[in-house]
Amino acid sequence: MTEALHIVCPHCHTTNRVQQAQLGSAPDCGSCHQPLFTGAPLALDATSFGKHVQRSHIPVLVDFWAPWCGPCRQMAPAFAQAARELEPGVRLAKLDTEAHPQVAAPYGIRSIPTMVLFQGGRELSRISGAMGAADIVRWVRSVQSS
Rank of each mutant, 00 (worst) to 15 (best):
T47Q: 11
V18M: 03
T15W: 09
S56F: 09
S25M: 08
H52L: 08
A83S: 14
D28E: 11
S56R: 06
E123S: 05
P67Y: 03
L23A: 05
A21K: 06
S146G: 13
Q144V: 10
L92R: 09
H6D: 05
P106W: 13
M131P: 11
A83C: 13
Q144P: 12
T97M: 10
D28T: 12
A93F: 09
E87P: 15
K94D: 12
L44N: 08
Y107K: 00
T2P: 15
H57T: 05
L95N: 06
P71K: 08
Q54A: 08
L5A: 01
Y107S: 03
R110L: 01
W68F: 11
S111T: 11
L92V: 06
S56D: 03
S125N: 13
V18F: 00
M1C: 11
F118P: 06
L92T: 04
S142K: 10
C9K: 02
G89V: 04
I7R: 02
Q20E: 08
Q102R: 13
S48D: 02
A99F: 06
I109Q: 12
D28I: 11
V18C: 00
A93Y: 08
S125Q: 14
F79M: 12
A105E: 11
C29S: 04
V143M: 02
S56A: 06
S31H: 09
S146H: 14
T14F: 15
T2V: 06
E87K: 08
T15R: 09
N16A: 03
A99C: 07
F37K: 11
S48F: 04
R55D: 00
S31I: 08
P10I: 09
R138I: 06
Q34C: 11
S111Y: 05
T14P: 01
K51G: 00
A130L: 07
R122L: 09
F37M: 13
Q81I: 14
I109N: 09
P113L: 05
C32D: 12
R138A: 12
G108D: 09
A133K: 14
H57A: 01
D96K: 06
P101E: 13
F64R: 07
V62Y: 01
N16Y: 01
A80S: 15
P35Q: 06
S146R: 14
V8C: 02
L5F: 00
V18Q: 03
R84T: 15
Q102F: 09
A46V: 01
